[in-house]
Simulated assay, not measured.
Amino acid sequence: PATGGAAGLAAAFADFMMDEDRAHNPPTSVVPRFHAFIARTSSARTFAVLPTRPNPRPTHADEGAIEAPAEIRTALIQHLAVPLGGDVLAAEYVLAAIVSRVHTRTDSLALGKLSVTLMGVPEGGDLPRNLAAAIADIAPYVAHLPLSIAGLNARSWTPKKDYGVNRLRSGPLQLAPGTVAILDETALTSGQLRETGVRNVQALKQLVQLQELEYDFQYHQMRMPVDVPVVVLTSAKQGDSVVQGGECRVPLRMVKDTRVAEPLDPVMAKTMRRFVARAWGSDHSISEKAGEEIESEMVAARQGERKATELEFHRWLTIARLCALSSGETDLTVKHWKHAMECERKTEERLRLM
């Protein structure tokens, strides 16, 4: 009888564990499904500008005209500057990152992206959370990802196939297209990265530099293209940021304490979201006059004392393009180019003074 009781207890425990496993890993047949009779293709951001009543063939005309784009751009920068302690230059770079997207891919470049690293962010403060909240007011998706030694070592941050349940396990870096990822290094402390942590840091660099994410199928790895604008927040004041590979390094110059941005007026919030969505989804063109002047300045930069590199040319053009788009315009003019170069000049001056 004692043996039978032990066997019964073991069988009951096995049934309990099976029920527990099914609760966390339900069979495909009982996973909820969503059935759609009519669907239209959108993106992470264009849904914000599509009409309530669907047009079978939506065009840019459906978005409606946006009045006073200069005023809206100023309002966006001021909104983002609040959590950044009033730093307007840093806010302008963050806005450029938000409206950036990959428009062309080569073997080693993802053209159009703009990753921004804000340096000298106070440790242990509320700035990262406040900035994430401010971006969430104007962008559809925001992922605030605090980086820590324990968190990086704990699990894979990239998708990994679990053959035990025949399912792909998601990771924190598996994000919807257009999601603004805030990589928060301000909570990092000294410690030892194990193998998983090292792979996660490599995945972060790959995301920032190439806009690619590696899926781990155990027997082989597959790189998938992504489109995730990245803002890195680091307390470092030199080039020792953990996440490397971004285009812009901007030292933060706070003139006041960080705080939560004031709630937006519903009408203004809708206008700002439409403005950001349109900027993100628009293409750009360069006039002949602008092209000639930009080309002449690039030639001069290549022949100067500090010869500019090809990557710097890509960065300058990208910033100028995003300056135009974030101004509500699609034509990249000499005005946008000069404004972009002025932003770069101010950033270089800050870097020299660090």
Rank of each mutant, 00 (worst) to 15 (best):
22 R>K: 14
200 N>Y: 11
9 L>C: 11
216 D>P: 04
332 L>I: 10
163 Y>N: 09
251 P>D: 09
191 G>P: 06
27 P>R: 12
3 T>F: 08
210 L>A: 15
217 F>W: 09
301 A>V: 00
90 A>L: 10
131 L>F: 02
310 E>C: 00
147 L>D: 00
12 A>W: 07
51 P>F: 02
11 A>C: 12
74 T>P: 01
5 G>R: 15
282 S>D: 11
140 P>M: 01
199 R>W: 00
237 K>T: 13
62 D>R: 03
24 H>P: 00
19 D>L: 14
238 Q>P: 00
72 I>L: 15
195 E>N: 11
24 H>F: 14
320 A>N: 02
281 G>P: 01
114 L>S: 05
266 P>M: 07
124 G>W: 08
321 R>S: 05
74 T>D: 14
127 L>H: 06
347 T>C: 13
220 H>N: 04
283 D>S: 12
17 M>P: 00
85 G>I: 02
147 L>I: 03
331 D>V: 12
325 L>R: 09
303 Q>T: 01
248 C>W: 02
149 I>K: 07
194 R>G: 15
347 T>G: 02
202 Q>P: 00
343 C>V: 07
49 V>K: 13
274 R>S: 08
220 H>D: 07
83 P>L: 08
71 E>G: 15
24 H>Y: 12
184 D>M: 01
83 P>G: 12
353 L>Q: 13
88 V>S: 11
80 L>Y: 06
264 L>T: 04
48 A>E: 15
156 S>C: 10
24 H>V: 10
298 M>N: 08
23 A>E: 13
138 I>G: 03
48 A>D: 13
190 S>I: 04
204 L>S: 02
38 I>G: 05
30 V>Y: 05
244 Q>P: 00
193 L>Q: 04
248 C>H: 02
29 S>A: 12
127 L>W: 04
5 G>L: 14
259 R>C: 07
212 E>T: 15
295 E>K: 12
196 T>S: 11
139 A>R: 07
178 G>S: 12
106 T>L: 11
345 R>L: 11
213 L>D: 07
140 P>A: 07
215 Y>E: 07
116 V>F: 00
107 D>N: 12
230 V>S: 07
31 V>D: 08
332 L>R: 00
206 Q>F: 05
64 G>K: 06
125 G>H: 08
145 L>E: 06
18 M>W: 08
296 S>C: 09
150 A>T: 10
